[in-house]
Write a protein that binds this DNA or RNA. Sequence first.
DNA 1: CCGAAAGTTGACGTTCACGTAATCGAAACG
DNA 2: CGTTTCGATTACGTGAACGTCAACTTTCGG
Lengths: 132, 132
Amino acid sequence: MSDELMTIRQMCDAFGVTPRTLRFYEARELIFPQRRGQHRLYDRRDRARLTLILRGKRFGFSLEQIRQLLELYEPGSRNETQIAATITIARERLADMERQYAELREAIADLAEQINDAETRLSDATHSKRSG
Amino acid sequence: MSDELMTIRQMCDAFGVTPRTLRFYEARELIFPQRRGQHRLYDRRDRARLTLILRGKRFGFSLEQIRQLLELYEPGSRNETQIAATITIARERLADMERQYAELREAIADLAEQINDAETRLSDATHSKRSG
DNA sequence: CCGAAAGTTGACGTTCACGTAATCGAAACG
DNA sequence: CGTTTCGATTACGTGAACGTCAACTTTCGG
């Protein structure tokens, strides 16, 4: 079984994206599949990165922000200055996410309350109809 | 003081948006400022809606999704079918937000860990430099 | 009363994140 | 051995959410 390398189609089926999307992410330097001849082949590392990309997107990060964060996940040989810069950026993103987390909690409570109110209104309307 | 009505510029300063943005939201039927002659005037209701709009945006909702949610906040005279439909949509958004909330918690922990690892690598690199 | 400031309506431009052909080469299949 | 099929490349198109510019009113301070 091809546990190691996957074709673009296998990737698309596995992650629910289109070939266009994978090539686009590659053009933006978010993933770096190898080539067999002209064809792309995606390994575990590419899959891990894609998972992170899609997660980042769900939180509203831009592809460029995600690209910067992905550097953090690469134990790659980069110099101290670059690592420090990446950490700085990551801390900012983390702060963003923590703010979003807190605000989301409020928003959820708020929306739940509004739904409750609306359900009450709906219920009242139904009853008044019955008694009218 | 103009506690009740605000001009477009006052709104922009208060909310950190541009006039274009406010007119755009109006065109998309997210806010409905009154007119004094040709000029727009925004009241408390408009401000409340704009607050919700900007919050929704921070969570990655589209303006159309936000518009639908805003209906929930209007005790307006709409029929039961419409209220029920709005509630259904709102429940879906609420579910989205709850999923996002849970996933965000994981992502925060994950990112914090990566930052820690990177800090360790950075620290190690600094020490090895000092002892090399 | 008048000229700058503020606001209005188009209309076209822009960025992001892809979608959608069109065309091509390689590869698998009957 | 021809022909689908899969993938690659190039390039133009698209929708969302505005930015920007032009051409006009409208309004307000001096």
